[in-house]
Design a protein around this nucleic acid. Structure first.
Lengths: 100, 100
DNA sequence: GCATAACTTTCCATATTGGCAAGTATAAAC
DNA sequence: GTTTATACTTGCCAATATGGAAAGTTATGC
């Protein structure tokens, strides 16, 4: 049982939540992610930057309803890293789960 | 989908690993936990103290093979908190899991 | 051009984690 | 009983991370 596979980029709760959303929806709006994670604009922006820097997320900007918007999507690396992280969590948790 | 249930006492990887071990085995030796978590004595000691302070773990000291040993066990609160934490992780991860 | 919304970046405070080294405690040897 | 070694524990410090407020930037609509 090793935690080697735990990805510290994805470990913080806010980033795990963002990743979980991106794993399900192809695109997620900045505002929606901020509601889900319940952090301030600046903090979400920084978390997204961290994900972008890791090569896990791509940001797309454009206009919708006459307003500038930002959408986040997973890159292939992001999908892969999230899958691996989830497996790592499951490896730790699944075994323990039997006893709960 | 809220991360409200994520227990920050159990969130750090080292503590999650310790908790996962304790969920399965009634007692875990200090030395074994140190091998699993791959941290130094002092760091493990501090993590265990954090778990004790949270009321999640109880430490027992005694002699074995003529040496002083320390064993960690979950308290009832520890078991409960770990179960809740695992459920919180699964709530985030399980939904995403479908798409992996 | 100007105002506004939607982020982004800077600055700062706080917290956490990790290791080393020194300290304490207990058991065994003598 | 004193010494010694093992098994942690605590103090100290450095490095990193997270969070928010506020100022800054950019794009859109008027």
């Amino acid at each position: 049982m090793s935690a080697g596979a735990i990805d510290m980029v994805l470990h913080p709760p806010a980033r795990l939540q963002v990743a979980a959303v991106l794993a399900r929806t192809s695109k997620a709006e900045f505002a929606r992610l901020r509601e889900i994670t319940q952090v301030s604009d600046s903090v979400l922006s920084k978390h997204l930057s961290a994900l972008v820097d890791a090569g896990y997320v791509k940001l797309t900007k454009g206009a919708l309803d006459g307003r500038q918007r930002t959408w986040a999507t997973f890159t292939a690396a992001g999908h892969k890293a999230f899958a691996a992280h989830v497996r790592a969590l499951q490896a730790i948790v699944a075994a323990a789960d039997e006893t709960i």
